[in-house]
Write a protein that binds this DNA or RNA. Sequence first.
DNA 1: ACCTGAACACCGTTCAAGT
DNA 2: ACCTGAACACCGTTCAAGT
Lengths: 185, 185
Amino acid sequence: MPRQARISRADVLEATLAIAEERGLAAVSMRSVAARLGVTPMALYRHVRDKQDLLDGLVERLLAELPIPDAGLPWDQRLRAMAASLRATAARHPDVFLMLLHRPVMTPAARRTREAVYDALRDGGVSEELIPRVERLLSTFVIGFAASEAGGRFAMHDRRVLDDDIDAGLQAFFAAVERLATQTA
Amino acid sequence: MPRQARISRADVLEATLAIAEERGLAAVSMRSVAARLGVTPMALYRHVRDKQDLLDGLVERLLAELPIPDAGLPWDQRLRAMAASLRATAARHPDVFLMLLHRPVMTPAARRTREAVYDALRDGGVSEELIPRVERLLSTFVIGFAASEAGGRFAMHDRRVLDDDIDAGLQAFFAAVERLATQTA
DNA sequence: ACCTGAACACCGTTCAAGT
DNA sequence: ACCTGAACACCGTTCAAGT
C-alpha cells in the first residue's frame, strides 16, 4: 500500500530557493534542505537524483519565472525587456544565476526563452539562416553582462553607468541587425 | 631562530593547479593540496588566507599567463588575438575560468590585460571618454563567450561554428568602433 | 618562524531496514 | 512506496603545542 508522499520535488526546490535567498547558495546542502522540510537527508533522493540535480532544478525554476514580453511590442523593445528581466533575476539570485554558465541548460524554459528571441529577430528582419547565430551572440552578451554584475565584476561602477552600458551595447546590436536586414532585403 | 620554509605560496598554487588539471576543480581541497606537498592541511594557512584566497590565486595565475599581443600589430588584430587567447585558456581550464565571473578580479594581471585593450581601442580611434565603456562591452562579450564554451552552453555546436560566431561578433564590434571613430573625427 | 595533532562542526551518498 | 538510521569517506578551520 503506497504511503502518502509527504514532500514533492516542487517542495524540495522551494525549500532550496528559500535557503539560497536567506543564507546564500553556500548554505544549501542536502542536509539543510532536508532539515527545513522536517525530513532526513536521504528522503530527498526520491525527488532529486543528487545535489547537482537539485541545483539544476533551481536554475530551471528561475528561468521558468522569466517573463516573456508581449508579442505586440516592437521587436527591439521586446529584446530590451528580456535583457532587463535577466539582469533583475541576476540581481535577485546572483549565485544561482552564475550557475547558468556552469553547465548546459536545455530545459523547456530555456527553449521558450530562446524562441522568443528568435521571433524578435525574425521581426527585426534577420534572415532565417542567420537567426541562430545572432541569437547566440546576443544572449552571450546579455547573459555575460548580467553574470558580470552578479559576480561583482562591475561592483565599482554605479548602477546608472551599467544601465547606460547595456543600452549602448543593445543599440550597437540593433544597428548591426538593421544593416543585416537591409543588405538582405 | 627561523626555520627554513619548506613550501612557498607559489608551490601551493602550483600544486593546486596540478590537482585541478589532473582531477578537476572539485578535487581541490586544502587537504588534497597539502597531501600533494607532503604537509599537513594547516601548513597551507601560512601561505593562503583561506580556501577562497587559494582559488583567487589560481585565477590570478591564469590571467598572468595570458599573452599580450605585440603592440606593432593592427589594433583589431590585437583584439582578435586576445579573444583567441582567452578562449584557449577557458578550454584548458574550464572550471577555473568560470571563477572569473564569480567575484571581482582586480589584480595586476587583470589591469595589464585591460590596459592592452584600452591601447588597442585608442589606436582604433575610440575617444578617450568612451574607451572604458567600449572595453567593458567588448570584454563582457568575449569573456561571456569563453565562459559559455567552458561551461558547455555551446556543447551541441561544432568548433567551426563557434569560431565563426566569435568572428562575426568581433566583426560587428569593429564596424561599430569604426562608425564611432569617424563620427567623432 | 614554521609546522603539527587533535578536535569541531560540518559535507554527499550508499545500504539495509522499517512501516 | 516512502522514509529512516547508521555508517563511510570526506570537508574547512581553530587552537594549543612542538621544534
